[in-house]
């Protein structure tokens, strides 16, 4: 009996979601009177997860650098068989949407996806998640075992690694699921900062009027803030920004500390992708734009006047 955290990694290093989920799992496990374990695929430094609260780490060796959901599910299923957890936590990233439901089906258990909070209630873990594109929130509890939850990146604070070391258990696994082979990986067209896990996001809308304006006004602010760059659907449909930068119901969901919306009116479909941002800044010349109802700070002015000044002010910070 334990809470098993899938500590996702790439190129031998853990992703930020590993610390985030281990930190939350440690608090949940204390409330439940259980322990935290971790699942590692590949060669990331598994023992180091002891410093983030994992009592034991189950590691499946292999080359996972070419994403293959079949191999991921086969390896994770072997780890689950060895770890026998009551709860599994994983990031709500591509792997959380692509491989984790397949794992849940193999384990004949239900799953709560894309949670924005987790708590212990009545002796079990309960997730909070949005439905209807963010227009309703509900608790989700799971009565089958293990209960699988994926959590939206940036939901919980990331604890510092205290330098502790965990026992590592090597888990044997073999491939049995039909394989999909990677032919070619296409690098992102723009900044390369992962929007879905970015701590800061700068987004532009239809008011930018052209790709040239988007590139000369929005991207420099993104660069100054070291932020991911996003766009409304109107802006991506008009070709001002590439499709993969779209934030909203039919695009990416972001959950940053800071979201700056410039020239975005705040249609319900856009709000669906960013409403959980901690601090929202709206810059729009229409004082009645719905985005102002969701903003922490608002500036009612032309973005072409304000955003370059904002870029300068950010660049001037020490």
């Amino acid at each position: 009996m334990s809470i098993l955290v899938f500590a996702d990694s790439a190129n031998g290093a853990f992703k930020p979601t590993a610390a985030e989920l281990l930190g939350k799992a440690t608090a949940l496990a204390a409330a439940l009177g259980t322990t935290v374990t971790a699942a590692v695929l590949g060669d990331a430094p598994a023992a180091s997860l002891g410093g983030l609260g994992a009592a034991k780490v189950f590691q499946a060796a292999g080359d996972f650098s070419n994403y293959d959901n079949g191999a991921i599910v086969d390896a994770l299923a072997a780890i689950v068989a060895a770890a026998n957890p009551t709860v599994i936590l994983a990031p709500a990233s591509y792997i959380g949407r692509d491989a984790l439901p397949r794992l849940a089906a193999r384990l004949d258990t239900a799953m709560g996806s894309d949670c924005s909070d987790l708590k212990v209630e009545g002796g079990v873990v309960v997730g909070r998640r949005s439905e209807f594109a963010g227009r309703a929130y509900a608790d989700v509890s799971i009565s089958s075992t293990p209960a699988v939850f994926t959590v939206r990146p940036n939901t919980f604070p990331k604890p510092e690694n205290n330098g502790g070391s965990a026992e590592v258990v090597a888990v044997d696994w073999s491939a049995s699921t039909p394989t999909v082979s990677v032919v070619e990986t296409l690098a992102p067209e723009a900044t390369g900062i992962d929007l879905s896990s970015a701590g800061k996001v700068v987004a532009g809308g239809r008011s930018l009027k052209s790709k040239e304006n988007f590139d000369s006004v929005i991207r420099p602010l993104g660069a100054a803030l070291q932020a991911g760059v996003g766009a409304s659907r109107a802006a991506t449909d008009a070709g001002y920004a590439p499709h993969n930068e779209q934030v909203g119901q039919t695009g990416q969901t972001v959950n940053p500390q800071l979201y700056i919306a410039a020239g975005i009116s705040g249609a319900i479909q856009h709000l669906a992708g960013m409403r959980t941002s901690k601090v929202i800044v709206a810059i729009n010349k229409d004082p009645d734009a719905p985005i102002f109802q969701h903003a922490t700070y608002g500036i009612v002015a032309d973005l072409f006047d304000v955003v370059p000044e904002l870029t300068k002010a950010v660049e001037a910070l020490d």
Partner: peptide
């Protein structure tokens, strides 16, 4: 085996400062 409860609208945000 999943059960949804406590439906509510999105949590209100504090009023914005212009």
């Amino acid at each position: 085996t999943s059960n949804q409860s406590n439906y509510a609208p999105p949590p209100p945000r504090p009023p914005s400062r212009i």
